[in-house]
């Protein structure tokens, strides 16, 4: 039996003429311990899908089950890491994480909770910054706090909603490797939402493209059959990397791409030359622009 299963899930917003269908016929089945990446355009409904899995929103149609039980509300068993970190600015790194730990494990003795919190701070290599406030940390460090907080709740499933999109390329690569390492140690079920195909290939067992909206749906999933740990540099030579990349990008730029308005229009581009604005204006009095020849008429296929 699938661990997490979505069956014919649809979701839209608004009513009547303003109704916008966001997700349509989403079917997704994830096994326990699997790392799945969902790759799609911004605005295609990735975050809506994540909110559904998290239980922050309910599907209009279809069902979603976790271990066979229908999901109806948010729960610490499904932890989310958001793109914007969502840390409390007045609390230190430790207190931000402890807040979650205290909430989820109220029955534990104080010592055990403290030890647990510190263990996760160490896991994301933030021990030296343990008592700093979020504003004293870089974006990459803040996102580590957010990851540690999610993992410290010991969730059944970890939801990563574009966790690295706000970071620069170098920090992103470092955190990707870190997430890969942490996942290898914990083997949690993970759903990663991203717009970066390469990120999916580095981290996931399976990549599922989400087509461009409105009415986005999931495409054929692509297995990432590359042994771990995955080395960025070695991947560049790997024909499997190339194939997976091409397949996912091919879908997202092709059938799963944005609807193309194929209009054929008669357009005219006058073949005139721009004027030198530094020349004195009197030069131009009653003289038209310089022309190459009359006009170039062309029919443009707009895609």
């Amino acid at each position: 039996m699938a661990f997490l299963e979505l069956k014919n899930v649809s979701k839209g917003y608004g009513f009547g003429a303003k109704r916008a269908e966001v997700l349509q016929d989403i079917n997704l089945s994830i096994a326990e311990g699997e790392f799945v990446a969902i790759v799609g355009y911004s605005g295609s409904g990735k975050t809506t899908l994540m909110s559904l899995i998290a239980g922050l929103q309910q599907p209009d149609q279809g069902t979603m089950t976790l271990r066979g039980e229908t999901v109806t509300e948010p729960s610490p068993e499904r932890a989310i890491v958001f793109q914007n970190y969502s840390l409390l600015p007045w609390l230190s790194v430790y207190d931000n994480i402890a807040l979650a730990v205290d909430e989820v494990f109220p029955s534990w003795p104080v010592d055990k909770r403290r030890q647990h919190t510190d263990q996760y701070i160490a896991m994301v290599n933030l021990t030296p910054a343990r008592d700093k406030k979020p504003r004293e940390l870089s974006g990459g460090m803040r996102q580590r706090v957010s990851v540690a907080r999610a993992l410290a709740m010991d969730p059944k499933i970890l939801l990563l909603d574009e966790p690295l999109s706000a970071l620069d390329a170098l920090t992103r690569a470092v955190l990707q490797d870190e997430i890969g390492r942490i996942w290898s140690e914990s083997r949690k079920t993970v759903v990663l939402i991203t717009n970066d195909v390469d990120e999916g290939i580095i981290l996931a067992d399976r990549i599922i493209p989400l087509s461009a909206g409105p009415g986005a749906t999931l495409g054929q999933s692509v297995k990432v059959d590359i042994e771990r740990p995955r080395d960025r540099k070695a991947l560049n030579h790997d024909p499997r990397f190339k194939d997976i990349r091409n397949e996912v990008i091919g879908y997202l730029l092709g059938t799963g791409g944005r609807p193309k308005a194929s209009v054929t229009r008669k357009l005219v581009l006058p073949e005139i030359e721009p004027e030198d604005l530094n020349a004195p204006r009197s030069v131009f009095r009653s003289v038209g622009p310089r022309r190459k020849n009359e006009e170039k008429r062309e029919t443009v296929e707009v895609s």
């Binding site: 308005a261 229009r265 357009l267 005219v268 581009l269 006058p270 005139i272 721009p274 004027e275 604005l277 131009f284 003289v287 038209g288 622009p289 443009v300 707009v302 895609s303």
Partner: peptide, 23 residues
């Protein structure tokens, strides 16, 4: 600015041309 000696019609055509070409 740069095509101020051209006819208004031509200026409009230039803008429309490039805006259409970029989709």
């Amino acid at each position: 600015q740069v095509f101020f000696t051209a006819r208004k019609e031509e200026r409009r055509e230039i803008a429309e041309y490039y805006l259409t070409v970029v989709g």
